[in-house]
Design a protein around this nucleic acid. Structure first.
Lengths: 255, 255
DNA sequence: AATAGCGGTCGGCATTACCGAACGCTTTGG
DNA sequence: CCAAAGCGTTCGGTAATGCCGACCGCTATT
């Protein structure tokens, strides 16, 4: 097994860094963050600039992500089989549940939203496609963790971030929640990431039965949960049915 | 001027190839398309896979774009100053004109849509953000060409593609259209890309007065144009005003 | 059952990209 | 107003780096 190409790894690290940071970064900051020499970093950035993966602000000389990435990102959506197969089912789930539907896959210790159907009523909503959710504070993430689609280790080693007072931060409680998820076949997160918001999710399996993603509904806690703070069983049923339908479409015969 | 990093250039070429093709590509096809040895191509692909820029289909071994690109693409939108400064103006333009509004920047001999406001009525529309339009068959593209924001040479050398019978394919007629655009300060494309569709666009200038993008309205030809096939002057006025407002926001003092 | 085509691997060579110091330039502080 | 620190950028030497092409095992064809 030959080694990976370092310059590409470094280029990818730079792009991730630019995506993670708030906005533009200077050459020095990039070099320092990755522990590289300024000259090396400059060469990589110049190359990335020549292929439109990064842009440089004329005035300040700082670097930011480039336009070519936007086209690559939407091209990814076009070829993503999980997304294309699920569109019919997610539309139906949104219509029947009356809630927003989101589809997530694991990426770099987070949940990447690859599809988002707005809640049928016409309230203002922002498109979540392309955003990253935390694994431990979302129903989508818990499902991916529970079924091994996303690695658990990084979370139990470093203390996970507490977004609200309901966020699960102890690895003991997290493990219990994941066991319950495996037991029940679905997960919920009630005000664990944003106060007032809740979501329910169920696993999607591909060929061979491996969990490759998760689908779920999300919305204000008073719509998702009953008076005791438990998710409505009807929403849970609709979500699980949608997840099973998508799995079947993907070729997961029984499950 | 030191040379750019070849492995990164090649990696970018592979990603562009995967984005351009219909879907998955095999290792051999990629290697042949780029004129590289299979071993070299495999090394790059393996590296891109390790950073989630490409994924490999377990069953067939073919490669496709990876999930990380989606997040990078949306992160680009978040930091794009042209887009963020124009949002208020494009919303207003859509509301006043009653038509869909799109914002484009040049990318690789095409127009990349970086923002899209749906037509206010609730007809079904697909989000164009991230798509590429041809320079010579869209109003957005003609504006970018006319003001030097996109290079003209590749188009006049190779015969441009004819999408409909109204598409401008002769470089003579294209040059005349661009001269008229510069003269008038706006451009239109009526059924030049898709029969029944038309759009109007005007240039957006950044600091220093250079054209950095274009904004325009688009829709069915019977809504955009009058009975003689000319764009409604009211829509032209609204579009040019919006473009001027965005330019001012970007720091283009007078123009 | 034979074979052509696929993705993947491995070793040797030389090209490759890395590093660190030096250069203008702008911006900050005195 | 000048000094000086910080920025992005350039440049040459070096050895480590990734490239190449032949080889392997497998699948799917004929």
């Amino acid at each position: 097994m030959a080694g990976p190409v370092q310059s590409i790894e470094r280029a990818a690290a730079i792009l991730r860094l630019l995506a993670g940071g708030p906005g533009r970064l200077g050459l020095g900051e990039v070099a320092a963050s990755l522990g590289l020499a300024k000259g090396t970093t400059h060469g990589i950035l110049r190359t990335l600039q020549s292929v439109d993966f990064v842009e440089q602000d004329e005035a300040t000389g700082k670097y930011q992500l480039g336009a070519a990435l936007l086209h690559l990102g939407t091209s990814y959506l076009d070829v993503n089989e999980l997304r294309s197969r699920s569109i019919n089912w997610t539309d139906a789930l949104a219509a029947r549940s009356g809630e927003a539907v989101r589809l997530g896959v694991p990426l770099e210790g987070k949940v990447l939203i690859v599809h988002h159907v707005f809640r049928p009523d016409d309230t203002f909503q922002t498109l979540d496609v392309g955003s990253l959710l935390p694994l431990h504070a979302s129903a989508l993430g818990k499902v991916l963790l529970a079924y091994g689609a996303a690695p658990l280790e990084p979370l139990v080693e470093g203390e996970p971030e507490a977004y609200t007072r309901h966020t699960i931060v102890s690895s003991q409680r997290l493990n219990r929640a994941l066991a319950e998820t495996r037991d029940a076949g679905w997960a919920a997160a009630v005000q664990e990431m944003i106060m007032g918001e809740a979501d329910i999710a169920a696993p999607i399996r591909g060929q061979g039965g491996l969990v490759v993603g998760a689908v779920g509904v999300s919305g204000p806690v008073e719509r998702i949960c009953d008076s005791k703070g438990h998710p409505h069983t009807s929403l849970v049923g609709l979500t699980r049915n949608a997840a099973r339908a998508i799995s079947r479409d993907l070729g997961a015969a029984r499950w």
